[in-house]
Design a protein around this nucleic acid. Sequence first.
DNA 1: ACCTTCGGGACTCCCCGTTTCT
DNA 2: AGAAACGGGGAGTCCCGAAGGT
Lengths: 186, 186, 186, 186
Amino acid sequence: MGKDVRATMIAGAAGLLSRRGLEGTSFSDVIEATGAPRGSLYHHFPGGKQELVTEAVRWVGARLERAMSTPQVLTPPQTVDLFVSLWRQLLVGSEFAGGCAAAAVATGVGTDAELLAVTSEVFRSWTTTLSHLFEQGGLTKAKARQLATTCIASMEGAVLLSRAQHSIAPFDDVARYLASSVKRVE
Amino acid sequence: MGKDVRATMIAGAAGLLSRRGLEGTSFSDVIEATGAPRGSLYHHFPGGKQELVTEAVRWVGARLERAMSTPQVLTPPQTVDLFVSLWRQLLVGSEFAGGCAAAAVATGVGTDAELLAVTSEVFRSWTTTLSHLFEQGGLTKAKARQLATTCIASMEGAVLLSRAQHSIAPFDDVARYLASSVKRVE
Amino acid sequence: MGKDVRATMIAGAAGLLSRRGLEGTSFSDVIEATGAPRGSLYHHFPGGKQELVTEAVRWVGARLERAMSTPQVLTPPQTVDLFVSLWRQLLVGSEFAGGCAAAAVATGVGTDAELLAVTSEVFRSWTTTLSHLFEQGGLTKAKARQLATTCIASMEGAVLLSRAQHSIAPFDDVARYLASSVKRVE
Amino acid sequence: MGKDVRATMIAGAAGLLSRRGLEGTSFSDVIEATGAPRGSLYHHFPGGKQELVTEAVRWVGARLERAMSTPQVLTPPQTVDLFVSLWRQLLVGSEFAGGCAAAAVATGVGTDAELLAVTSEVFRSWTTTLSHLFEQGGLTKAKARQLATTCIASMEGAVLLSRAQHSIAPFDDVARYLASSVKRVE
DNA sequence: ACCTTCGGGACTCCCCGTTTCT
DNA sequence: AGAAACGGGGAGTCCCGAAGGT
């Protein structure tokens, strides 16, 4: 049960981070969102906000990786489609209010090297995972890495644009271009 | 002279926004960075921080458009190269510390519809401008818009990744993929 | 008028310190007691609580010195009587609730060398002032200093005892002994 | 063994109180200083911090009384010398960092009548003990009480001054005056 | 008429003493 | 006997009107 409270806090923090950003997510917000008392946060996260945010970033990082892990081998277009669909869910599921928590932390961080390292690790891990999938689909190592990085970058950007414009259109434009370009790569 | 002070403040605010984000940029920071007295900010920007940020976002929006305006007609690959090079400068010029001020405002905004509308307008304007260039280069209207949106999105994302990882590598991977894909589009 | 607000804050802080001690005197308490807004405190005392407390200690130090400055020359018993009467006022005026603000800071300070230095300076100054008065009254330099120090120390202690016991009796016992002993010194 | 842990906690708390004051002594500090687990404190002291502090004050009160109990009859100067030497040890033994735990509680207490009563009782007990010794030494009842109170008060004050000034000089000045005055009393 | 000091309140992170459930 | 949960303040900062000084 103790772990449950902790997990709830992490998930709650991740949700707030994705919607309101790093500076927009206060301890009081997390407390209110989770119903936990103030002291409990410091009990589970003695390192304060930094520790909570770190865990939240790691959690969203791992969640996406879990969603990308499939038993069968995918072709690059299938991989892109799966990846894109996950981001699309994020966007429409929050009604254009939420983005990527890792990106929110990375941009809002100011001058905090430690936290930046965590987001960096998440991005690197995503890149590696996608890259492997593309290699299994027949792409060269270099091309796979480029495509993987572009997928992540363009999804981050696409979510940003669609949030700003309160419209799925920019996202879908990026999704279409990405899909068409990867088909030609094969 | 009055305009000069105002312009200095706007540029200073834009710089701070790109590096430290919306919430990380306080009035005191802008005052310190520009050397202007406190009252002057409220003299030139009666609307307070919101007005200053609005102007800063518009200013970076217009600056990129100016940099993209060329007398001669460009092929799509040339357009992409030019666009990418502008973002690359932003990244290396700030030593991976700065990103896109408009993106910083868009993500850090929380619940401010008015400011979000300004960033939305900037993104829309960039899209239109790029799209026209691609159409002039021979792409269909739909394909031009998709490519334009993807360029912006992937650059935003690429800057994000490179900032997080303190490395130009992710950016260059995205740049390479984008260049190769647009060549195949022709 | 600006100085007036500042002086009010200092006096208010001194009163709270004498009654509730260093840790028992919060910024909120001073705000409430003076009616000033929170920001004003930090405006007048950018150094925060430490700066406010420092000024309060200096103020009580100076106040006692002013009260001890008389035009005519006093005999040692008269000096002791005057000094004792000031402390008696402090005690009965607050109905045994208040003590010496400088002592409160000195004991509650924990590990703050800077603040301790301020209280040290106040005590030293009191000692010097009293010592001079005793020398003018005919005592030797060494004896004057011993008596001065004993006056201060025994008053601090007497106030402490009377506060703890909610009774003027301990204070008056000390006052009587001090008076009788100084008469024999002459 | 249970009593042993309890005694350790009381002694540890007394030490912390004398050095850091009432508010400066947290439960966590006592736990850290004694190595006991968090819950043990509430096991041994169900009344919480108040109970622990109460016991600590009583303990230092009793300790001083034990040190003052001697088989033979002392003259008033001898009694004063013994009493003064105990306080001097306290001061130099802690390198001017520690004072009287009872005084620390009495001043830092704010609005806690119960705790104040305990310190009051300690002071009263010390006074009675000293007074009896002086009476046995030949002083009148009234004079003995005045001298006893003055001894306690001036020691409390002298320790305060010497702590603030990080010097034994004020203490020794008070000690000298006290010794000289008591010789003249006889 | 400018700016610049002052006044005002909300909010953040953090720590503390305590209780409750295992 | 011990770990987890619980709230209440504490200090400090921020963004921002509204008066005085030049």
